[in-house]
Design a protein around this nucleic acid. Structure first.
Lengths: 193, 193
DNA sequence: GACATTCTAAAACGTGCATTCTAATTGGCA
DNA sequence: TGCCAATTAGAATGCACGTTTTAGAATGTC
C-alpha cells in the first residue's frame, strides 16, 4: 500500500445500492454513484473493472447479507421463523431491501453480465441458500424431495413474505405491523410439510 | 386518410411488450422495436410521441387486458376464482404476462414518465381495479373496511399468485400444474373475510 | 529524501440511443 | 388525371453515459 485511499470499495457499493433503491437501475450511472460518494468517476475504475462489476458486487453484498439472516433458521428447521426474519432484516437494512427485493437481477444484468468471478461468487451464494431450503424441507418431509415441495417452501418462506412487503417497500415508509400477522397466518394455514 | 398505413399502433405495442418480455427494459430500444415490426424508427414517432409514450401505451394495454380478466370475478365476490383466473390469463398471454408481471413500472418509467394522458388513463385503470378489490372485500366483511383487510385481499388474490408464477415466468416454459393447487390451498388456509 | 506505486482528479473519447429531419411514396378524392 | 396529406424510409443530429487517458498528489520503503 502506498497511498491511503479516501474512498473504500464499500463506499461505492453502498452508493450503488442507494442509487438503485431510490431511482431504479437507470439511476445507477457511474457518474451518479461517484457524485454520491464525492469521488471522481475514474476512482470507481480503480476498484471495479466496469459498471457490470460495480452492480454485481453490490448485488452479491446485498444477497449475502440477506441470506446470512435466513439460512441459519432454515438449517435449524424453523421455516416460520425464517419467513418472519425477513421483516427485521428489511427494517434494519431498508436500502438493501429496496435494492435486493424490488429489482430482478435480470433487469440489472442482462445487457452486460458481471465478470466471471462475481458470477461464480453469486452462484455459490445461491447454491448455499438453496441447500438451506432443501435441508429445511427435508427435516419436515419423510421421503423423497419433490419439486413441488421445494417450490412450496420457497414460496412460503421467501416469495410470499416479500410479496407482502413489496407494496410498502415501493411506497417507502415503515413496514406495517400487520405484515408479521399475515406471515404468521400464512404459515398457520399452509404448513410446509 | 390518404395513404394506408403498413403498420398499426398495435404492431408497435406488441413489439414493445415482446422486447421487454424477452430482454428487459434495456432491450426495448426504439430501433429494436422498429426492427421487430419491420418498420423504420421514424414510423414509431408518427404514432407515439416518445419512448416513454411507447412504453406507457404498452403498459396500459397489458394492464387493461389483465384487469379485464379479474375485475368481473372480484365484483362478483369470488376472490378465489379471481386468483385462479391469473393462470389461464398468463398461459394465454405469455408475452403480456412476462411484460406486466416481471417488471415493476418504476423500472420502466422513472427516468422519464409517460405523457399526462397515458398516466391519467393508467390511473383510471388502477382505480377501477382497486374498486373491484374493495367491492370484493366488502361482500365478505361486515363493518368498516380496514387497510389491513384490503392489503390481505390484494396479497391473496394478486401478489401471492404472481409470486407463485414468477419463477416460472422468468425461466420461461409452461406454468406447472401445481400452481393451481398452491393457489387453492392458499385460499383454503387463509380466507379473505 | 528520492523512488515506486497507488490513488485522486478532471477532462476527453467513443458509442449507442432517442429524436428529428428531409425526401420519396402512396392512394383517396376532386 | 393530378393533387395532397399521411405515411414510409432512412439518414443525420445531439446528448448522455461508460470508459479511457493524462496529470498530479500522497505515502510507505530504501
Amino acid at each position: 500500500m502506498v497511498r491511503t485511499a479516501r474512498f473504500s470499495e464499500d463506499d461505492f457499493i453502498e452508493a450503488t445500492m442507494a442509487q438503485v433503491a431510490e431511482g431504479g437501475p437507470p439511476a445507477a450511472t457511474m457518474q451518479a454513484i461517484a457524485r454520491r460518494v464525492g469521488a471522481p468517476t475514474g476512482s470507481i475504475y480503480h476498484r471495479f473493472e466496469s459498471r457490470a462489476a460495480m452492480l454485481g458486487a453490490a448485488w452479491n453484498a446485498a444477497y449475502a447479507s440477506f441470506t446470512a439472516a435466513l439460512a441459519p433458521l432454515l438449517r435449524a428447521g424453523r421455516p416460520r421463523d425464517a419467513a418472519l426474519a425477513i421483516l427485521p432484516w428489511a427494517r434494519e437494512h431498508e436500502r438493501r431491501a429496496r435494492f435486493l427485493l424490488l429489482h430482478e437481477p435480470v433487469a440489472l444484468f442482462e445487457d452486460t453480465p458481471p465478470p466471471a468471478p462475481l458470477r461464480a461468487e453469486l452462484e455459490r451464494l445461491e447454491e448455499s441458500f438453496d441447500d438451506a431450503f432443501r435441508a429445511c424441507v427435508a427435516t419436515r418431509g419423510d421421503g423423497a424431495l419433490r419439486e413441488e415441495d421445494l417450490a412450496r417452501a420457497k414460496f412460503l418462506i421467501f416469495d410470499a413474505p416479500i410479496a407482502i412487503l413489496r407494496p410498502h417497500l415501493m411506497r417507502g415508509g415503515p413496514l406495517p405491523p400487520f405484515a408479521e400477522r399475515m406471515i404468521a397466518e400464512l404459515h398457520a394455514g399452509m404448513p410446509i410439510g
